[in-house]
Write a protein that binds this DNA or RNA. Structure first.
Lengths: 221, 221
DNA sequence: TCCTCCTCGGGACATCTGTCCTTTCGTAAT
DNA sequence: ATTACGAAAGGACAGATGTCCCGAGGAGGA
């Protein structure tokens, strides 16, 4: 898993006496890790926790782009293109990163095939999923997106029980490019049709086959 | 410009006697270069022409993702992630590519830092622009998107005369995630307000400052 | 010239979706 | 226990947007 990444960096750190330059950085839940518009200082390799990436319009509106689990890399676009930070990255739970300062990359890692392969895979993955969610958000109405979202998540983990927690609703809404209000509207329809039911602070899906059907086969992966 | 890419590949081709494996491939306007779901056979480096990339939903609906000018690379996601072709790539005008078979990449280029840097930059660029258009499409109403689109294009070339040709309308609509009908609706508003005017088969912007204003500062780059 | 076909602009309509606001409910402090 | 605050669900409304469709005009063939 994430050890691959760590291994590469670790090897470098000993073979080049750079161990003291590579740091572990930790963030509390909800803490901003990167802020759009600021200067990037290096690569961040997530080895523990979960963060989300959100992109902001000049107008202030915001779109949640994706959740990231280990292994994930922050800072790649910025360092490769030499620009400012593109998106806000916020810890969704306590997060631990291996931090590699930019100058180490410029001096050493830039010419390391293994390290570059890691970056390439990460970028290819991000680009593929970004393309998909862009397309899904643009083309499918919200109920399809919501169903597709649930099906996508459900195929990862397999506890097909209660995915939507009321707390997540706002984030879920942002992730599929809509509002909490509208999610509620759809959920109301579903509960009326007994596809789902509400409980204290969670929404339970009763008929996955219906949700599957609503999703029209659309997925986020 | 695109010679950088060609140079790397060219160097390899002589130093490794691979010249005969690297081919020039040409496509006619409107010809499919890559078709989603098929197997990828190598990298394609655009050295001449223009193509567009469109992504298709299972449902058949389609979203135009971007136009590509030289230098641009096709096949990166697929080869790096080892999957099938993700999107349709269609020549918008006659196109010339340098084609590098997959096995040459696997055997040689995979370990070449310069080649990998090219891929990294290309991927970073695509990811950045994909993120932006995803966000803009999701958050801004269509009139803002259209204005932003025009402003983005206008800042590239500088003939601020007649950007929207009636022929392009369908594509333009797909590119900003809407329908031709709706573009027409907006254009009607603009002509009523004398922001634009229609001519035979083109739309001329009369007041760029108004378009600028409508765009709310949103851009696709 | 006339007919046919095709495309384009735009009318009519339905519906999707966001915003604003009210009501309800639960929690925590007094 | 009571009160006050805040969060959540959902009603009402307006606006944005897609679909369907029709009439007009242009291009090409008979």
């Amino acid at each position: 898993m994430e050890l691959n990444q760590f291994t590469v960096i670790y090897n470098y750190s000993i073979s080049n006496n750079l161990g003291k330059e590579i740091r572990i950085r930790t963030y509390k839940s909800q803490e901003y890790i990167l802020t759009a518009g600021e200067e990037i200082d290096g690569f961040y390799f997530l080895i523990n926790g979960r963060y989300f990436v959100s992109s902001q319009e000049i107008t202030g509106k915001e779109l949640l782009l994706r959740y990231c689990l280990p292994p994930a890399v922050m800072g790649d676009i910025e360092i490769l293109e030499g620009g400012l930070i593109q998106s806000n990255c916020i810890a969704a739970e306590p997060c631990t990163f291996v931090f590699v300062p930019k100058w180490i990359y410029e001096k050493e890692l830039k010419y390391d095939a293994v390290f570059m392969q890691i970056l390439l895979k990460e970028l290819a993955y991000k680009l593929r999923t970004c393309t998909i969610s862009s397309r899904v958000n643009a083309l499918s109405p919200t109920n399809v997106r919501l169903a597709a979202f649930l099906c996508t998540i459900a195929s990862d983990s397999d506890s097909r029980a209660s995915y939507l927690l009321t707390n997540n609703m706002e984030e879920t809404a942002a992730l599929i490019g809509t509002t909490k209000r509208h999610i509620n509207r759809i959920l109301k329809q579903w509960t009326d049709q007994e596809i789902a039911e509400r409980e204290k602070d969670e929404i339970r899906i009763l008929q996955w086959d219906k949700v599957e059907e609503i999703s029209e086969g659309v997925r986020f992966e």
